[in-house]
Design a protein around this nucleic acid. Structure first.
Lengths: 120, 120
DNA sequence: ACTTGACCTGGAGTTGCTCCAGGCTCCTAA
DNA sequence: TTAGGAGCCTGGAGCAACTCCAGGTCAAGT
């Protein structure tokens, strides 16, 4: 498939996909005889994973490392597992941040209520 | 108090606080006779709120708007409430993203298990 | 033959910080 | 009293991670 389909399936914009390819986050994508990129289902699966990792705050440096492991094949599975487990921890921390922010907002909104209530 | 204390209490770095002041996100901070910034408790409360809003993904444009309302005083409380309620929705969306990513990771990790299990 | 649409490349622009050079002022300690 | 250090100042450069754009190619439809 071509880049627009890969984009809508993975969630990444076409620009971002090209950018990721340039920076080595994505293995060089095969080209058709017309010179256009042709994405395999495996390519799209990889892009989709990157989409979720980025969206939930994995820095590009860490993704670069993960991409390197990916390119090195099956014997790096244990290391890749470690990266994903580490990211699970980050997800938990982020969720805690969201919860704490929700608390802060609740307090603020309650204060707004009191102030507005004071105004007759 | 001075900037380092405001920084440790709010969570924002001193650089970020100065940057926020420059861009109008924070009202101009009073200066002591030495020319250094002196933060009031109200300043710090505002900075702390900004810290949480930014950390959980409110874009600066929206914070600018919120800051403008804040500077306009108590009669903008209803609009400020609306901004915070909108942000609560964003928190929920972000949480959904985290959960979906957790699912993706779980699937990936299970796949890794299967592949590694295959290797005798 | 010509237009349309999807794609290409290289490079500039944007957001939201972060770091740094070079220079104040105040405090402490020799 | 003077030397050093800590903490702060400003203006500006640098960075991450995109995003947008100009200018061009190619394939297919009318």
């Amino acid at each position: 498939m071509r880049i627009s389909e890969a984009s809508s399936k993975s969630g990444l914009s076409a620009d971002t996909i090209r950018f990721y390819e340039k920076t080595g986050l994505v293995p060089a994508i095969a080209r058709g005889p017309d010179g256009l990129r042709r994405f395999s289902p495996e390519n799209v699966e990889w892009l989709t994973l990157l989409y979720w990792l980025r969206k939930t705050g994995m820095p590009m440096q860490e993704m670069q490392h993960f991409a390197l492991l990916y390119r090195q094949g099956a014997q790096t599975l244990p290391q890749r597992r470690a990266v994903l487990l580490e990211h699970e921890k980050r997800l938990r921390r982020r969720r805690d941040d969201l919860d704490r922010c929700a608390d802060v907002l609740a307090v603020k909104l309650a204060a707004y209520d009191r102030i507005e209530g004071d105004q007759p």
